[in-house]
Design a protein around this nucleic acid. Structure first.
Lengths: 190, 190
DNA sequence: TGATAAAGTTGAACTAGTTCAATAAAAGTA
DNA sequence: TACTTTTATTGAACTAGTTCAACTTTATCA
């Protein structure tokens, strides 16, 4: 079923009743995106929180020098949003682009508020999810400061072998914080 | 009063009743730390979540090469913990050290669980706090990848002028992800 | 107060990673 | 199928940041 993956994702974080899980699902609506299509562009307001059922996305910024900086990739079972823009309804710094034909489910800001109200245990759910995300961001930061580009590259390919098959080296480089030319040299050196 | 700062901190995130706020405070116990004293050391389990009333702390790791990597500094009005170790009661990767005589309040894992149960709105409070933290970590990561060391140094000193007065250049360097020798050269170059 | 440790500075040699430009390979499109 | 655009590779010159070592300044504390 459409919402099975979402239910499994929730269950990884918290034990909820069947009726709670079913209720949560009703707040999400499906959406398809074609390859290269943008779900969010820098400067616009993030009106949804998304969850990937199928496909792959890249979440990235473009800085003043024109360089792309990839924050993360989201495939099946990942969440998708600009938390800041979604929460405060302010212009986003992020771009979210489908890297292949993709299938997601979305919840709007208004429905998210209703969800918190009508299914109070979702507060705990999203608290736990957020706390796990903090840990992941902290670890990424430490890796960026303590590992070489080569070590980071191998950490990435070992940790996300499934994502690696869906993205270009240029995109990996923008995730690792190096130029794609240097990534090419890293790959050759081993 | 002892808990005024905590109450103000909570109010920045969520509107709670006076009784809820007072109830929350009862779960926290005060603790003093002398300069250089550790609240948490790498390998041990984080048994508390802390909030700084006075003083300054450094949260850092030491990697395999022996290099220190500062995750953040916490002064008055900052939270203090290893979320991962606290949540899962697993050995911590982090060190938390007082940089001056400090005054904090702590809540244990058991009391935090009781707090969530007895004051359900704290789920929302900590969800909101966690989401703000994610935004901050994401921005830091983007800055690290898109700014030069010199730009990061000035961003840090402009953003946290109060913290700068309490820490050494060596500690700033370990936060910026550069050597202290290079930081010294950055400072001279301007 | 003086002694000792720690932090900060400086310079020279080095290296990880960048920049630019040219070319090759692959993917998208008609 | 050929044409165009994007991605990947490679080399040479460069630069941001490191390493090491010597020295100076500032904290610490008995």
């Amino acid at each position: 079923m459409l919402y099975d993956l979402l239910i499994q994702n929730i269950k990884k974080n918290i034990a909820l009743s069947k009726s709670e899980l079913e209720s949560i699902c009703t707040y999400f609506t499906p959406k398809q995106l074609a390859k290269k299509e943008f779900l969010l562009t820098q400067g616009s307001i993030c009106k949804f929180e998304g969850f990937v059922l199928e496909g792959c996305f890249r979440i990235f910024t473009i800085d003043k020098k024109g360089n792309e900086n990839t924050l993360y990739f989201a495939t099946k079972d990942w969440w998708l949003m600009d938390i800041d823009s979604f929460t405060n309804q302010t212009p986003s710094d992020l771009n979210i682009q489908a890297l292949e034909d993709s299938h997601i489910i979305l919840i709007s800001k208004e429905d998210k508020a209703k969800l918190y109200k009508n299914v109070p245990s979702t507060e705990k759910l999203f608290r736990i999810m957020s706390q796990k995300a903090i840990v992941a961001w902290q670890r990424r930061l430490i890796r960026n400061n303590s590992l070489t580009a080569k070590e980071r590259y191998f950490h990435f390919t070992n940790t996300y072998p499934d994502i690696v098959t869906k993205i270009t080296d240029k995109q990996i480089a923008s995730y690792l914080g190096i130029t794609h030319e240097f990534l090419s040299k890293i790959k050759k050196s081993n």
